[in-house]
Design a protein around this nucleic acid. Structure first.
Lengths: 207, 207
DNA sequence: GACAACATACCGACTGGTCGGTATGTATTT
DNA sequence: AAATACATACCGACCAGTCGGTATGTTGTC
């Protein structure tokens, strides 16, 4: 562990390159040679740090969890007092992230799991951890919003948290198909409207 | 086009094999050799019918549109008299299709577009046609349901139709990540609940 | 603090096999 | 006989992965 701001080592450079290249071309089409040249390291460095290509895939998914986890942890949507406001601000934040080119805002693990779910179980599990782990960060607020309203619905906080991820992942697919983020943004608008209606349909706010 | 029930020609066998293989392994990881052996034809037949691998990708997406288009056209959800009932029955039908192994119920074009949107514009466009074309079959019922209720919402029939596809595509990603269809089914439940609430929030049924 | 012993990080040429694609042949249909 | 529909053999590029090697720590011993 380097004590200060030393230049990134080969492993980190490879992981950063993997995020960019795999998000653009997919996992299978990203060759080890291309990942190395994108990272500015040699093939020897690659196989020094990773047993094989699949091991890099797993590490890239875990790295993605770290990077995005830190990003969302520091995002401003946590600042609201009310749990429902936090949840809605999260959705707004996800919509606001739909900026720039498609490879810049789409999800690494959603892309990778589509290609590897049958052929690389270790990568699939890493992607599963990433998605479900991120969804779990929403559960507490959902539960608090339910409790605030004395709701006993026929759905669970967990299922709603995962549903938000389904909508976002699906929106990314539409963005990739259409070449832009407009339709993806409209789908997130629908998600926001759904959450508003879910929590507005019951009576008042405090018991 | 063969006039009657002759045995399928090499082109059709290749397209059927492409649906199965690509849905399982993704587009890039599906080699021409493997597609040929899965179809029971030789490489010569492949390049007789398709200029290159990308041309097969485009043809497979179009073939997918044909096959699924016929399937949905003949599906029983059209039998309802009320347009909203037809829409909700469509959602129920999509949920009922979540049976068997994951490669059997997931979407070819949703998988392919993730890998090819930046590198193979022709395939991306074919996938876009498939998704938006299918979504368009829902628009008339959505519009009729809106009209029945004199609704003037801040969303369009088209955006809701595409949102259903986003949820379904996202549900497939969750199914691939978790290795089962349970969470995908719950996400479709949330979609159904959203549609019910959207059309229930306004007053009565006939004007 | 000098030095041996070992560990880590990285390099780049090389290998066997697979890739998409081509060239050419042959049987069948029109 | 001419086009269609395949089959067979093959090509060069590229693939993931290997291997011998070097440069630079780190650690233990005296």
């Amino acid at each position: 562990m380097p004590r200060s701001t030393t230049k990134p080592d080969a492993r980190t450079k490879l992981l950063d390159a993997a995020l960019a290249v795999i998000r653009t071309k997919g996992y299978s089409a990203s060759s080890v040679d291309e990942l190395c040249s994108a990272a500015g390291v040699t093939k020897g460095a690659f196989f020094h740090h990773f047993k094989n290509k699949d091991a890099l895939g797993v590490a890239a998914a875990d790295y993605w969890s770290e990077v995005t986890g830190a990003q969302f942890e520091g995002a401003p949507y946590h600042d609201h007092d009310d749990p429902l406001d936090r949840l809605l601000a999260y959705v707004d934040y996800r919509k606001a992230l739909l900026q720039g080119d498609v490879p810049d805002f789409t999800c690494l693990v959603g892309t990778m799991v589509q290609e590897t779910y049958e052929t690389a179980p270790a990568i699939r599990d890493a992607c599963k951890r990433s998605i479900t782990g991120h969804a779990a960060t929403l559960e507490a607020d959902i539960e608090a919003a339910m409790r605030e309203r004395n709701m006993t619905p026929d759905w669970t906080a967990k299922s709603l948290a995962l549903h938000t991820q389904a909508v976002i992942q699906g929106a990314f697919i539409l963005a990739k198909a259409t070449g832009g983020s407009e339709i993806a943004a409209e789908s997130i608008d629908h998600l926001r409207r759904y959450i508003e209606m879910l929590f507005a349909s019951t009576t008042g706010k405090q018991s």
